[in-house]
Design a protein around this nucleic acid. Structure first.
Lengths: 149, 149
DNA sequence: TTGCTTTTACGAAATGTTTCGTATACTTTT
DNA sequence: AAAAGTATACGAAACATTTCGTAAAAGCAA
């Protein structure tokens, strides 16, 4: 099967090397790391340049800063790196879901005293959701409430 | 009106001084700060000793470490301080709700790509809630869905 | 070829966070 | 009264995070 290559994928035709690291305990990513991870989650394997451009849509960051961050994250095992000729292509090595769970747990524990209800109510109250989204949530609640529809 | 004094309140009969600071923009509390804030939120105005004892139920922390943290947080305006004779009584100066909102926003933005639905679903899915809590949430959803019951 | 651009590597400054040792003063116990 | 215990203040070490300057190598354009 084939598909159209996205702009940043055009470089990926000649992969030389894959750096792998064994799966380890993950530490909570720092703020800057999380910022970069969310770019990686959204746009898949991308170059440093691409990451940096995305970050700069929100705030001014130097190219070498982003590069250094990615190098550090690579050492920590947060991202993986492939080489295409001279340039490196980065991907997130931890799933968004894993981080979501971890951070949610922590937030729940520290800021909400462990009450999922309070957290959910505040999230729903403060951020507008579509009819469909609310419907999905109700469906989940029905499932949680016990067994058959 | 009178009520029974809690153990740590017995010291509070002779308040000499209240340190006030003007309300300012709040920065996200650090992890250690949040840990302390959650103790203050739960147990109201308390001594350094009390905070430290609570922290030590979770992990080992030296007394002077906790003291120093509280002093720093006091400078930052995160907590206020009253004196009762020789000892200081600390309270949180920012509401739990304000911090909850702030951290929730951030988490939503960075880890969940802005989707409140995903966050809510994950929170509900991973942490068991009581029948009553789910009922409350449903009630809120009905309210959000539009007007009259 | 020569110079301009883009890339990674690396060290280090700047900043922020956490921890604790030591000093000093006051209170309580012996 | 002396000793032991308990307070706060403060400096500074240890650590972590973020930012960027500089260098060297590779690719590109004239």
């Amino acid at each position: 099967m084939f598909r159209i290559l996205l702009p940043y994928e055009i470089f990926r035709n000649n992969i030389n090397q894959v750096i792998m690291m064994q799966e380890n305990v993950i530490k909570k990513p720092t703020d800057a790391e999380l910022e970069i991870l969310s770019v990686l989650w959204e746009f898949g394997p991308i170059t440093v340049r691409f990451v940096n451009d995305q970050l700069n849509k929100r705030r001014e960051v130097g190219y070498t800063t982003t590069l250094k961050m990615l190098q550090i994250m690579s050492e920590k095992g947060l991202v993986s790196r492939e080489m295409d000729g001279r340039t490196h292509i980065y991907s997130a090595r931890i799933s968004q879901e894993k981080i979501q769970g971890k951070l949610l747990d922590r937030l729940l524990e520290t800021a909400f005293g462990g009450s999922a209800q309070k957290l959910v109510m505040q999230a729903l109250g403060n951020h507008s959701s579509s009819k469909e989204e609310l419907e999905e949530i109700k469906k989940l609640i029905r499932r949680l409430e016990g067994g058959k529809p």
